Simulated scan of single mutants.
Amino acid sequence: MSTDFQQARTALGARLRELRAEQTGRDLAARLGWTQSKVSKLETGRQTATVDDLRAWAVATGHPEAGPELESRLLGLESHVRSWRRQLRAGHRPVQDALTIEYERSTVLRAWEGSMVVGMLQTADYARAIFQAYVDLHQSPRDIDDAVRARMHRQHLLYGTGRAFHIVMWEAALHVRACPPSVLAAQLDRLAGVIGLDTIRLGIVPFGAAVRIPPGPGFWLYDERLAIVEDWHAELWLDDADSVGVYRRVWDLLDQAAVYGPHAHRLIARARAALDVA
Rank of each mutant, 00 (worst) to 15 (best):
190 R>N: 13
145 D>Q: 14
257 A>Y: 03
109 L>P: 04
155 Q>R: 02
7 Q>P: 06
250 V>M: 07
164 A>F: 12
35 T>A: 14
230 E>Y: 03
198 D>G: 02
60 A>I: 05
30 A>W: 07
24 T>L: 06
124 A>D: 09
206 P>S: 11
112 W>F: 14
263 H>K: 08
158 L>C: 03
220 W>L: 11
8 A>F: 02
188 L>C: 07
17 R>H: 15
115 S>W: 11
93 R>M: 08
29 A>W: 07
233 H>Y: 03
30 A>L: 12
3 T>E: 08
277 V>L: 07
200 I>Y: 12
54 L>H: 13
90 A>G: 15
37 S>V: 07
276 D>W: 15
141 P>R: 09
165 F>R: 05
262 P>A: 05
180 P>D: 08
30 A>S: 01
262 P>Q: 07
29 A>E: 08
154 R>G: 05
172 A>E: 11
58 A>K: 07
53 D>P: 15
15 R>K: 09
58 A>R: 04
47 Q>H: 14
15 R>G: 09
195 I>M: 05
20 R>C: 09
56 A>E: 12
136 D>W: 11
196 G>F: 10
74 L>G: 14
273 A>K: 15
50 T>Q: 06
91 G>S: 05
33 G>W: 11
220 W>C: 05
214 P>V: 03
154 R>P: 03
123 T>L: 02
15 R>N: 04
27 D>C: 08
91 G>N: 01
139 Q>T: 11
160 G>K: 12
125 D>H: 10
21 A>M: 00
23 Q>F: 01
70 L>E: 02
190 R>W: 00
62 G>K: 05
172 A>S: 14
266 R>F: 01
150 A>V: 03
12 L>Q: 15
143 D>K: 12
108 V>N: 10
120 M>Q: 03
82 R>V: 10
33 G>Y: 00
192 A>F: 09
15 R>L: 02
127 A>S: 05
37 S>K: 12
206 P>G: 00
